[in-house]
Nucleic acid binder design. Structure first.
Lengths: 301, 301
DNA sequence: TAAGATGTTTTGAATAATAAAAAACCAAAA
DNA sequence: TTTTGGTTTTTTATTATTCAAAACATCTTA
């Protein structure tokens, strides 16, 4: 009923191999030295040393810590079952929700989900709380959570917001000097696009990553923490949506590549109107694709 | 070590007054009826009834719940000390941080803060987690939180982001039909501005609220959850910043009013270029004001 | 007598246990 | 058959506990 002792276990086991690498009947370095070597606090080092002493690997006498014997396999401490962090939780949660295994309106069972996802309940709580900012889940009046789901409205608002940010980014891009890294980046992206276009029949699936890289590159020229924050959720949603609607995928991706190439050309022209037009056009198709796959999914339910 | 029993206490006390309003020796309605009347679960109703029975207000016999006597003042149950919700926490936290009582880089003591702010620790955790999205606080590697603070960079990025959103809103506004409520709203706002201008020497302090209302009105035409989400943090920061830098406040506010009036006129003209120019101009001043007051504060430390 | 090392205490955050509430279920009576 | 009351089962919110870190004090040795 407390925090896990992974730190102690890891320190202990590292110390074990450390001892094995030393001569017998030689003293280990000071607690402080070990602490900074292992990257843990002295408290942990001391617990680990005591543990080692109890199992007879070392003897403690004042400040001398003498190595007495080699380690046996059963000397290594077992790690407690490891819980996932928020990043992994995020991925698994979206896998679960965006594949629409769960219908909107479902009340979420935090305790059960925490078990299923192998995370601590408070980690899940915090995660849900962060999702509630975007209305993907809502907190119920008397406690508990409800899945609001990934609605068409959500997709439309997300796309609109994305457009606002990206059109702003485009205006930045066309004003950037020739020696700005974005231009080399765009050159590289063009090569990648053309390469994918050549082998589109086989590898049309790879477009998802290319799309993400492309939009990320454009938005990266705006050095703003709020933009970055949103870029995260945007790329997340678009990333997952690519994974369902499989109909016409090859065709959609091929035409999207052509739009990207036109987009890149327009940016290179440095003509704001031309660039904005190309961007608007592509963002509109992209939004439409997202909404379509949502509607297709709704019908499938 | 559990959830509070406020629900029980409230149900109990409501039931008490309910009984007082009834004849003696008459039976109360069914548990289900009471539950839906009080808006709680039957479990709570039953606990409350048992409580009432123990104190002799009613007697329970099968499904008859007979009122036996009137309530005495000492029959009402005491509520447990109420903890603040997130909204109040938000206000108090920003009061604490934005007044710069706390220097950036401070490690935040969650347990202590929870006591000071009279909130549950997990409420505070969740709140800090939400702030961490904007880089106001950061999670430390081995747990714990650190105040990153409200830096000049933060202000610049916030202002930039605000501009992007508001310029987008402006483009929406100028395209709205004459019968859209925004025009009446702007008329009302103009009246308020002129009224404040007339008594500016005495009431220049009231501008803060007017400013918030004005920008809220413009941004409200964009019906987008992400915009709304950001509007919250933006108005929060701008609201608080109005409270410190007091130098030139009267003058600053007076000229801001004039900018607002010009801004309104430009919107009414329906000319996108004119409206955007007016918006840009005002947003630039606003941003400058924010940065200035920050710098003034930095020097004051 | 410094400098470094160890022993001790205090503080703090993460988690497990737990109490309160809600929901689900079942049985009996109207 | 419907409604009501009893019982059991989730499920959430909160606290108590535990591990870790840091601060402090003491001792040893060069």
């Amino acid at each position: 009923m407390a925090r896990t002792n992974v730190r102690l276990v890891e320190a202990h086991n590292q110390l074990l191999t450390h001892c094995d690498g030393m001569e017998l009947n030689v003293s280990l370095p000071s607690e402080n030295a070990l602490a900074s070597e292992l990257g843990v606090s002295r408290t942990v080092v001391r617990s680990a040393l005591e543990h080692l002493a109890r199992s007879g690997i070392i003897t403690l006498d004042g400040r001398t810590k003498t190595v007495r014997r080699r380690s046996r396999p059963d000397d290594v401490m077992e790690k407690p079952p490891v819980l996932l962090g928020v990043e992994e939780l995020e991925a698994r949660f979206f896998d679960w929700v965006l594949r629409m295994d769960v219908p909107p309106g479902t009340v979420l069972n935090v305790a059960q989900m925490a078990k299923d996802f192998h995370v601590a309940t408070h980690t899940l709580q915090e995660f849900l709380s962060s999702l509630s900012r975007y209305g993907i889940v809502v907190r119920r009046p008397k406690g508990g959570w409800q899945l609001e789901g990934f609605t068409v409205n959500f997709a439309l608002e997300l796309s609109e917001f994305r457009s606002v940010l990206e059109l702003n980014a485009v205006q930045h891009v066309v004003r950037l000097p020739d020696d700005h890294p974005i231009w080399d980046k765009l050159d590289a992206l063009e090569t990648d696009h053309r390469s994918l276009l050549a082998r589109i029949d086989a590898d049309y699936h790879d477009f998802s990553q290319l799309d993400e890289a492309f939009h990320a590159a454009i938005n990266a020229v705006v050095d703003n923490r709020f933009v970055r924050e949103f870029q995260k959720i945007i790329s997340l949603i678009f990333h997952y949506h690519f994974q369902w609607n499989k109909s016409d995928e090859r065709l959609r991706n091929e035409s999207a590549i052509h739009e990207h190439l036109a987009y890149i050309d327009a940016l290179r022209s440095r003509d704001p109107d031309k660039a904005l037009a190309a961007a608007r056009s592509h963002l509109a198709t992209s939004s439409q694709t997202l909404v379509n796959s949502l509607k297709a999914h709704d019908r499938a339910l």
